[in-house]
């Protein structure tokens, strides 16, 4: 059993990679989701087209393909990325495309009344968004953002295909070195599950914070 500790450490190394991928991927996805989501409803048609194209392409193709393009095809144009950078970029852009639709949907779900009040009070476009629309749209986005973050965590395993040693990759190493299939895969199952519980808990906290004071509104 002494050996197993070493193997567990190997898997925990992988878990750390998975956590970093998840955190950075989520951060990128969040930024991208807001940019593309706002772009989708921007008053300028070219911006809307660009945002729509991005969203449709990244939702319409698989994350495997996206990852391969970013890691193997992009270098042909002179942009070489480390596996970690490629992984974060693929995850962020993929999940960001789904997040963009969440941002857009939440903004459009804020009653039109609210927009009209901001016009009557002569706020500028940015002020309307910043002070009235987004604060009311944010609580609508958070539950789905939580799901997206968990989706992203689960998708991190694809990076093992570009030989990034995330948790799944390490589990396979352990399996091939020990011949034991059950133990490494039970371990990562438990860790993945714990991580998604953690994400859910964090999102729950944020949600409660953001919706505080909005009770009785919806």
């Amino acid at each position: 059993m002494g050996d197993w500790t070493g193997y567990l450490l190997l898997i925990l190394d992988g878990a750390w990679v998975t956590v970093r991928l998840t955190v950075m991927g989520c951060a990128l996805a969040l930024v991208v989701a807001f940019i593309a989501g706002l772009g989708r409803i921007a008053p300028w048609a070219p911006v809307r087209w660009l945002a729509t194209a991005y969203i449709e392409i990244f939702r319409g193709t698989s994350i495997f393909v996206q990852l391969f393009w970013i890691y193997f095809v992009l270098p042909l144009t002179g942009v070489a990325l480390t596996p970690m950078q490629a992984g974060v970029l693929a995850l962020g852009l993929n999940v960001g495309a789904y997040g963009a639709e969440v941002v857009r949907g939440a903004i459009l779900a804020v009653p039109r009344d609210q927009y009209e009040a901001t016009v009557a009070l002569n706020l500028t476009g940015w002020q309307r968004l910043r002070h009235v629309i987004l604060p009311q749209a944010l609580p609508l986005m958070l539950p789905t953002f939580g799901n997206n973050a968990i989706e992203l965590l689960k998708a991190t395993a694809v990076v093992s295909l570009i030989s990034l040693s995330d948790m799944t990759f390490q589990a396979q190493i352990v399996r091939s070195q020990t011949g034991n299939t059950i133990l490494p895969f039970v371990t990562i199952l438990v860790i993945y599950f714990a991580l998604s519980l953690l994400i859910a808990a964090i999102m729950g906290r944020i949600e409660r914070r953001v919706t505080r004071g909005l009770d009785g509104v919806r």
Binding site: D113, Q114, E116, A117, A120, V132, P135, Q136, G213, L214, V217
Partner: peptide
């Protein structure tokens, strides 16, 4: 406005 349109937040 008829329906006040106050900012609920």
């Amino acid at each position: 406005f008829q329906h006040f349109n106050l900012f609920p937040h």
